[in-house]
Amino acid sequence: MTSVAPDPLPVLARKDFVSDQEVRWCPGCGDYSILAQTQKLMPELGIPRENIVFISGIGCNSRLPYYMNTYGFHSIHGRAPTIATGLKLARPDLSIWVITGDGDGLSIGGNHLLHIIRRNVDVVIVLFNNRIYGLTKGQYSPTSEQGKITKTSPLGAIDYPINALSFALGAGATFVARSLDIDVHHLIATLERAAHHKGTSFVEVYQNCNVFNDGAFIEFADKAVRPDRTISLEQGKPIIFGKEQNRGIRLNGTTPEIVELGNGVDESDLLVHDESRPDRTVASILTRMEYPEYPVPMGVFRAVERPTYNELLEGQIEEARSREGEGDLEALFAQGDTWVVD
């Protein structure tokens, strides 16, 4: 037999992942940037287009699958993780992306988000957090700050907000990261890390809704103040931030402290970021750092390996087959006591 060289994989570009649908988000919406970085990332992953599926729930963010020239499923409110789970169990060969938002993922679909993360189903989840309900035109969301005045909270929201990353860590997430819509290099790098992680990758993206919650993150995300008011987490390095790179985070027990470098404080006093810690405590402390008390950490908080749900399920099937042999349906029909009537 002559050996035949396989056809080379076609080289894809961003345009191959752009669908023919007109994008209908409001001009200036942070979603455009997330879409662009996602489309840009796809060719880098080397996965055939037909093996990629985007699944969403309901909300502005959840229109994203329509704009991706891959397989897509725009489902119902909060349920994207369930559809993604069923698809991944049936088709472990596919690369599955769940697109959700603060309302879709943390309010109506909170339970499903909890359980897909807990099971470590091998999918990427991107949660667009704009701290508002945009599609329904401006009601407060579960991540809106307390006191927020919206149409449904004219005297200020009295709900305490939920922290998406603390939630994910609490559920046992094996990959937890945060990025920012306008920080495009950071965003694509974060999404790429998420894509390569085996297991549930949970990425929160701070996304500006310029119509109903404009400037929700501007106090720390604006380019001018970002170096002083955010932290770029880097694996294996002490946590240092500031335009001058002169401040850092030190742990005092379980409480993080902002310290100035110098005057007897040096890098060895600082918390060294290690996303691979088996224990979730330190990552959890980092997720609790919120502006204005602290600079807001961005990047990968946690990345650990653990068998995925879909692998474990396949493993049980293989094990059952190696132990008991392939199932014999007719033998199964006749299981137990049988008798013959002539």
């Binding site: 489902s75 349920r79 369930t82 559809i83 993604a84 789970t85 069923g86 698809l87 499903h112």
Partner: peptide
């Protein structure tokens, strides 16, 4: 809800 969602996904 998750049970039927998974069935639909499959």
């Amino acid at each position: 809800l998750a049970a039927i969602g998974a069935a639909i996904g499959a």
